[in-house]
Write a protein that binds this DNA or RNA. Structure first.
Lengths: 348, 348
DNA sequence: TTGAAAGCGCTAACAC
DNA sequence: GTGTTAGCGCTTTCAA
């Protein structure tokens, strides 16, 4: 009937027999359910341990309908933000003895990306989605399965989410540059078709500029990568009157911008000011002023929110009012990359 | 009997009935097994698609004994090397329609780390272990389950592994510094109790030094982190006669070293030379000379090796001679951080 | 080529 | 507090 690999493993029946009880009792005892005599429980535990018994996950799942597994859907796993989030999630899940299944779906803007909606059915008890920018149809499909979910960087009605206030973060970075006296503040944006989070950052920048009576500049697109940031910065530099300061929507793009500046013999923090958003591990090394977000913590919070959902009431109606958006705080970390305008060399 | 959540999902029985065949035929047809009339298969497929049928993983697993899942055991997921490896693994697994379970076990040298040996039983069809340095007992336990395995950065008899030639990489970096005329070449090592891979890098360094008639310096320990590299470099600088060049066993430590140098007003690539191993994404940005390894590729190879094992013969005897070690090539990438000794400022 | 039927190993009513 | 028992939804012999 069954493909047996390796050692024939022992089953709950073996344990029941050895302990002189029924399989039901073994099941109850081992899972810590009530209505088991303490003495019986102890004996069952001991016997099970002696026999090195391990419950069969498949059997348990089939019978109970629970998988003890959570899927994380993320565009990337090898980029700082995402791997850090993942690590936070992993921590929490591990504490709760829940398995972590990872689906790396790629940038929805470029790759088709395997949505994995149907993959998830019966495979996991819940899903954490990490910033799939503006990928509404896919997300809707996901939720249609009725799986408990929790989002990071995406707001969705009825689903708990963990986000920073993107507009505020962008405003903070931009305002900092403005406060230093800069009037021509360039912006390194993500991509032309903005995600909600990108749009909010753009808004924050624009608001800060207009609030100071300054003219927002046209965005250069860096696609949130180092290489993209480099070429975007390069294009900014080729303008007739380059900015004296630059706001980058992500640290990676700022890193790329720094490289572009180096190539042009322009010293960030001396000839030009630059600030961004992220709080990347290596931003300190590069002396980059950035608006830090508690990324690992965000992963942890999303995991907790999901776990609550999964354990909570059985009827997580969409639109549940208390499916809260958690807005985590950001902090401006001022470093050497931002200098007052009077100290910068005129590039214009 | 069963906890039913959400919509009552349709089963193979529903499909069988709708298609006018038995469940056995549906199973065969949908899985592409032979001995099914093409016409029947087509009909079953259509009906299944129309009904939006998805096999229940738990049931399928219980009946077949296969899980279609692979576990990756890694000390970290939020560090460049590990997340990059993970991404490579994820790619390959996804192509083969195999699920990826991630266990982040922490640094075995410091944390107790949940070994997860018994967790794996019945949960996955195979395991990929990423550089758990010198963690022999745990690894042995793992293999005892008889699970197909594949290692990255760890050699183990009878298990396919993907490694770089650590000694050669270290030799290459050190020799490069020696060739530039440096005679006092410091070394930023990992930790006092060396893993095999760390030991090999130390050996490569020593060999290069002795081969040039130079005296190997005493190692400073940076624990493979940026912060560790910084303090290790700091201690090197406090020596009576600091080295004119430094070999760091990892890019992260080199990054930290660069920070330490910055703090001391010493310019890497001007006052001191530094070279390391990794080929980190941001090494170019920091103009760091490094011995690059194809990390993502290593992940891919390990995944392929495991998949081969899983699909291959049913009896993967330990000690199988063709359980090959794959040694991947490394390349020295020379950048601005390594300068000839005559151009460095004397620090001694 | 197809179907009948016996499990896979566990959980959860329900009865005692 | 404990046992009995009927599944969970599939896969896989075996027979037709």
């Amino acid at each position: 009937m069954t493909a047996q690999r390796g050692v024939v493993s022992i089953t709950i029946r073996d344990v029941a027999q050895a302990a002189g009880v029924s399989t039901a009792t073994v099941s109850r005892a081992l899972r810590g359910l009530p209505h088991v005599d303490p003495e019986t429980r102890e004996r069952v535990r001991r016997v099970a341990a002696e026999m090195d018994y391990v419950v069969s996950p498949s059997a348990s799942r089939l019978a109970s309908g629970r998988t003890g597994t959570v899927a994380v859907i993320t565009p990337f796993i090898d980029r700082w933000f995402f791997s850090t989030v993942l690590s936070g999630i992993s921590d929490v899940l591990q504490e709760s003895d829940v398995d972590l299944l990872v689906y790396e779906v790629g940038d929805p803007a470029t790759s088709p990306g395997l949505p994995a909606e149907r993959r998830l059915r019966g495979r996991v008890d819940g899903v954490i989605v990490v910033t799939l920018p503006t990928d509404a149809p896919r997300i809707a499909d996901l939720l249609e399965i009725g799986l408990p979910a929790s989002f990071i960087g995406v707001r969705w009605p009825g689903v708990p989410s963990v986000c920073i206030d993107d507009a505020a973060a962008a405003r903070m970075a931009t305002q900092h540059l403005i406060n230093l006296g800069h009037e021509r503040v360039g912006i390194l944006s993500g991509r032309p078709q903005a995600s909600t989070s990108q749009a909010a950052r753009a808004r924050g920048y624009t608001e800060a500029m207009k609030g100071a009576g300054l003219e927002p500049e046209e965005a250069a697109y860096g696609y949130f990568t180092v290489a993209g940031g480099e070429s975007a910065m390069t294009s900014l530099l080729s303008q007739p009157r380059p900015p004296t300061a630059v706001f980058a929507m992500s640290d990676d793009m700022a890193f790329g911008a720094i490289r572009a500046l180096q190539r042009h013999g322009i010293r960030p923090g001396v000839d030009i000011a630059i600030a961004s958003i992220d709080g990347h591990d290596l931003s300190e090394l590069l002396d980059l002023t950035t608006v830090g977000q508690p990324v690992e913590q965000m992963g942890r919070m999303a995991a907790h929110a999901l776990l609550d959902r999964m354990l909570g009431r059985d009827n997580p109606d969409a639109g549940d009012p208390d499916a809260g958006e958690i807005a985590v705080p950001t902090t401006l970390v001022v470093r050497g990359s931002t200098v007052p305008v009077e100290r910068t060399t005129s590039l214009g």
